[in-house]
Simulated assay, not measured.
Amino acid sequence: MSDKAQPIEIGKFGAVYGIKGWLKVHSYTDDPESIFQYKPLLMKSNGAFQEVTITEWKRHNKGFVAKVAGYDVREEVQALVGLDLLVDPSGLPELETDYYWRDLVGCQVNTDKGYHLGVVTDLMETGSKDVLVVKANSNDAFGQKERLIPFIEEQVVLNVDITGQLITVNWEPDF
């Protein structure tokens, strides 16, 4: 099974909340509330995926708390603290673009002049613009091991070829 077919982490259970089996929920989705719309929602426990049903949820401070089916007391729900929440890729919503961020990780990055800059290892959200984290091979002739390249389409990021795993950028290689 390819990495793209593996369930995708979209959140995590946090600390126990109250005595009636509620937990804090940390959402990693663009719209934080949308974590509760994914079906089926999975949790990963001891390396195995298990379907989980959220019966109720509500906003609490800057986050959320939720009630999980089958867990009614604080001591029972304590076992879920820290578990990842995941969704099958087929359950993801339609895209406005042709790819998710996770699709960019592992892509080679070349300049429009043919210089190889490295491989995308991560993406960062900075508030004003997203940033590609590109790590160069240790044999990189330019000496840098990591570059932060702003993800500004048409100006910096000229082409994204997910099938070919290649991103072409208008970026100087920093000799």
Results as ranks from 00 to 15, higher is better:
Val65Phe: 02
Ala79Thr: 12
Glu51Val: 11
Lys113Gln: 09
Lys58Cys: 07
Gly21His: 02
Leu42Lys: 01
Asn170His: 14
Arg59Trp: 00
Phe175His: 13
Asp31Tyr: 12
Thr163Phe: 07
Gly143Met: 00
Gln37Tyr: 14
Val160Gln: 03
Val156Tyr: 00
Glu146Gly: 09
Gln144Lys: 13
Lys24Asn: 07
Gly106Ser: 02
Glu125Val: 11
Ile149Pro: 01
Phe175Thr: 11
Asp122His: 04
Glu9Lys: 14
Thr97Glu: 06
Gln144Gly: 11
Lys145His: 09
Ser45Phe: 06
Tyr17Thr: 01
Trp57Met: 13
Arg74Gly: 06
Ala48Glu: 15
Phe49Gln: 08
Asp122Gly: 09
Glu76Ala: 10
Ala69Asn: 15
Tyr99Glu: 07
Asp161Glu: 12
Val169Glu: 12
Lys129Ile: 04
Glu9Arg: 13
Ile10Pro: 00
Gln50Met: 15
Thr97Cys: 05
Phe49Thr: 13
Asp103Leu: 03
Val87His: 05
Lys67Ala: 14
Leu41Ser: 12
Gly47Tyr: 06
Gly11Glu: 05
Lys67Trp: 04
Ala69Val: 07
Gly91Ile: 07
Thr168Trp: 02
Pro173Thr: 11
His26Ser: 11
Gly106Ile: 03
Gly82Met: 06
Asp72Gln: 09
Tyr100His: 10
Thr121Met: 03
His60Glu: 15
Ala66Gly: 04
Lys44Phe: 06
Gly91Glu: 14
Glu9Asn: 10
Asp98His: 11
His116Tyr: 10
